[in-house]
Amino acid sequence: MFAAGLSACSMPSSGPNRNEIFSGSVLREGDAYIVAVGDRVNRAANVPLARGFSDTLRNAALMGGDTIRIGDTVSLTVYENVPEGLLASADSRGATLTDLQVDSQGFIYVPFAGRVRAAGQTPEGLRGTIARQLDEQTPDPQVYVSRTSGDGATVSLVGSLGAQGVYPIVRPTRRLTAMLAAAGGVTIPTQSTVITVNRGSISDRVWLQDLFDHPELDIALRGGDRVLVEQDQRRFTVMGATGAQALVTFDSQVLTAIEALAQVGGLDATRADPTGVFVFRNEPAEVARNVLGRQDITGDQRLVYVLDLTAPNGMFMARDFQIRDGDTIYVTEASAVTWNRTIATLTGTLSIAGGAVSTAETAGDL
């Protein structure tokens, strides 16, 4: 009768137990591969997250910081060596022309010099061109040219920066890190900051820290580049007998199972089974082949990694096992907890039933 009552009861639980998870193995009723984590599995499963710039971005040559481009604006100051020059007034021998925009064909218009090609020249080269054209009408003119801001070569910077905006590429800001500094720097923790650079159809991402660890990633910028600075968006889920049930965002480039559990308060000391820490993951075929030691695997595979923290090297295995984006970490309850809950439920049921019988007998006596 007790066994019948036990089987009839639906026991409350925080999730599946070890046996129920193992029943989902390909060796039993399911389609998941159950894998115990060891040194070999760690080496096969801990595939580094590939982030970096493509050869197209890394091989781009450094731009001439003072090269004038279509859309830029330039300013001219012309000094003449005659009392009454072409541009100078009676009070001053110098004339300043500001905000001369380079048109769509690459020219600017300078009085008495006409249309002058500016695009592709440096300010020094443009100075010489204008001086030669004015020299035909005024003796030995002295010309000063400066390139001011314009949209000829600009970069858009958005996201977690001190000052988002559109910035011109000038000599001090021809590389990515210099441009980030010009925009006020990054305002989020550097260890979890991701930089995305969009150039035409190319969209590449890199860790901010890698820009400093690997100088070759500090790419040369191009006009029209769009740069996004954001917090790492990878997440994992923790469920079961832990300090909290949560969807957690990564706070570093590499996160191990031990660190992930620590972020939610660790294992619940009153409920958790330290031999039953499971990591559920969909693995690509190439990783699954290495983990399982099988070459007949095709397509993504469901893998359940098992961590036994009570094993002699269990804590080391968990410390070395890396969590990835989309992982689900589940900690089973200890069998004693399940048993105690079952007994408590049955005891409560029997007490209620006993009370009902007692009430019925009392009513019969009446």
Results as ranks from 00 to 15, higher is better:
237 T>M: 09
236 F>N: 06
314 G>A: 11
230 E>C: 01
226 R>L: 03
285 A>W: 05
281 R>H: 01
321 F>V: 11
316 F>K: 04
276 G>E: 04
207 W>Q: 02
269 A>M: 11
251 D>R: 15
316 F>I: 15
255 L>G: 05
220 A>P: 06
287 V>C: 02
314 G>E: 07
324 R>C: 05
249 T>Y: 13
315 M>Y: 07
298 T>M: 11
296 D>Q: 10
318 A>Q: 10
208 L>A: 09
218 D>M: 10
255 L>S: 05
291 V>F: 05
290 N>Q: 14
212 F>R: 09
215 P>C: 08
269 A>H: 06
249 T>V: 14
230 E>N: 12
284 P>S: 06
235 R>H: 09
307 L>V: 02
208 L>V: 13
303 L>S: 02
310 T>D: 08
271 R>L: 11
249 T>S: 15
248 V>L: 05
227 V>R: 00
283 E>F: 12
233 Q>C: 03
298 T>D: 08
304 V>W: 06
259 E>M: 13
253 Q>D: 12
302 R>N: 11
262 A>P: 03
257 A>C: 08
320 D>H: 07
244 A>H: 11
324 R>E: 14
271 R>D: 01
248 V>I: 14
280 F>M: 14
287 V>P: 00
236 F>I: 14
247 L>P: 00
215 P>N: 07
223 G>Y: 09
269 A>F: 04
320 D>M: 10
264 V>W: 04
264 V>S: 05
306 V>Y: 03
294 R>H: 04
311 A>S: 09
260 A>L: 13
239 M>L: 15
212 F>T: 12
219 I>M: 07
275 T>Q: 14
321 F>M: 14
207 W>A: 01
296 D>K: 06
289 R>L: 09
283 E>Y: 09
220 A>G: 14
324 R>N: 15
326 G>R: 14
267 L>N: 01
280 F>I: 13
223 G>L: 12
291 V>G: 01
303 L>M: 03
270 T>W: 00
248 V>F: 01
309 L>Y: 01
313 N>P: 00
243 G>D: 06
290 N>V: 06
263 Q>F: 09
299 G>P: 03
315 M>H: 04
291 V>N: 03
284 P>V: 13
276 G>W: 02
261 L>C: 09
325 D>F: 07
314 G>M: 10
220 A>I: 07
309 L>A: 04
253 Q>R: 15
304 V>M: 02
314 G>I: 13
295 Q>M: 12
317 M>H: 10
305 Y>R: 04
251 D>T: 15
312 P>I: 11
290 N>E: 11
234 R>E: 07
234 R>T: 12
312 P>D: 03
221 L>T: 09
294 R>E: 06
324 R>L: 14
256 T>Q: 05
289 R>V: 12
271 R>P: 02
299 G>W: 03
230 E>Y: 12
303 L>R: 00
287 V>D: 02
224 G>K: 02
207 W>V: 01
276 G>Q: 06
